[in-house]
């Protein structure tokens, strides 16, 4: 919590952890100094089932550029799959 930059959001889906697939209901996105990634700063994402706790979370630390690339890839896949409505829906979310 050196930067204090943390965003929380609800999510709906599944993730695969060390004990197999489980339901995800919460995502925490932070911009801070990473624990493992070889970078000064990183986007740290925890995908969580709140009932299962943080021990079973899926955690990633992405360099800022790779986080942007991932966001672009996600939006591009949504755009191709769902059409032009994706952009409007994303703006609604923001």
């Amino acid at each position: 919590m050196c930067t204090g930059i943390v965003e929380n959001t609800r999510v709906s889906g599944c993730g695969k952890g060390p004990h197999g697939w489980f339901i995800l209901d919460h995502a925490i996105v932070a911009y801070d100094h990473p624990d493992h990634a070889q970078a000064e700063r990183a986007v740290m994402i925890d995908l969580v089932n709140e009932a299962a706790g943080f021990e079973s979370r899926i955690a990633v630390e992405l360099t800022p550029q790779s986080a942007r690339d991932l966001v672009r890839a996600i939006l591009a896949s949504l755009s191709r799959g769902e059409g032009d409505g994706t952009r409007a829906r994303n703006q609604d979310v923001q």
Partner: peptide
């Protein structure tokens, strides 16, 4: 309690 980095993730989610 837990593995330190898991506890830290919990604290991060709670806003510190």
């Amino acid at each position: 309690h837990g593995v330190p980095e898991d506890v830290a993730a919990r604290v991060r989610a709670a806003g510190g």
